[in-house]
Design a protein around this nucleic acid. Sequence first.
DNA 1: AGTATTTATCATATTTTCATGAGAAACACA
DNA 2: TGTGTTTCTCATGAAAATATGATAAATACT
Lengths: 148, 148
Amino acid sequence: MISQTGEYALRAVLYLAQHEEGDPVSVETIADDLSMPRNYLSKTLHLLAKRGILSSARGPRGGFELAVPRDQLSLFEIVEPFDDLEGRGQCLLGRPECSDQTPCAAHHRWKDLAQRVSTFFRETTVDDLIAEMNEAAAGAAGNGTGPD
Amino acid sequence: MISQTGEYALRAVLYLAQHEEGDPVSVETIADDLSMPRNYLSKTLHLLAKRGILSSARGPRGGFELAVPRDQLSLFEIVEPFDDLEGRGQCLLGRPECSDQTPCAAHHRWKDLAQRVSTFFRETTVDDLIAEMNEAAAGAAGNGTGPD
DNA sequence: AGTATTTATCATATTTTCATGAGAAACACA
DNA sequence: TGTGTTTCTCATGAAAATATGATAAATACT
């Protein structure tokens, strides 16, 4: 659905959202914890910083941190620099123009689903996912399954 | 959503479904009409033939044609040899295992949509798309917009 | 049999994506 | 001012996806 790079971006931002207290987090730490290629992640996060989604600082006590409140940061903004989620690539048959007026063979059956995917990325925030993780963790704890 | 190759496969099969009367269609013809790389398409269709979706014949009057009734051929079968639509790649965060029991942060919000996409490919047939094209064409004809 | 046509197959090239490595630039702290 | 830490940037490499070209194998037709 999304590229490897987009997935790295998403997971790294999620990680930063969970470690918001205190100093920024270094690429080294993120890459180690999430098993990602260090320098590649560095470039990826740098681009998100240029987009204003993260802030970066060099030198000791430097690193990356969120530059936007978690509940105002959509998945779309994180992934969009790396993957074309809308516009081109929207048409299942790859047509540059595919609309209600100039539909491809799949248009009417596909567009609703494509729209839902688009909406998912635009309306789901980082905060939503963090909240869901916490709920899942809490649910597991009270489940008899136990933590760990 | 799907790879270039998967898209070629889909469009070519659709083309074959629209030209089912008479002789098989040569790769040359399809590639020309749909603006696809000829030899690459040849390999792509060859794989579909090995899967039993198309039948191929060499020599004069040879070419490809559907080996399965249009209304029994799902988009899934056509695209699956080229794109992993289910299983891996299903998890938005790329986890090898992601289920209700071991959910990723996005699992609960994403799975319904992923399921819908999966269902779309499994349940939509070539015949469905052809029918929709014909309806669209008929609609345009009666619309005042006119054909052409 | 011979010839033209068409798929099948192999070798290779190109492009894009993903990844690694080294050094420059900025910064905190002593 | 110096030193170590970290991002930034560039150069390069590896792998996968996409594409091209040439030839072999099969077939229909004369």
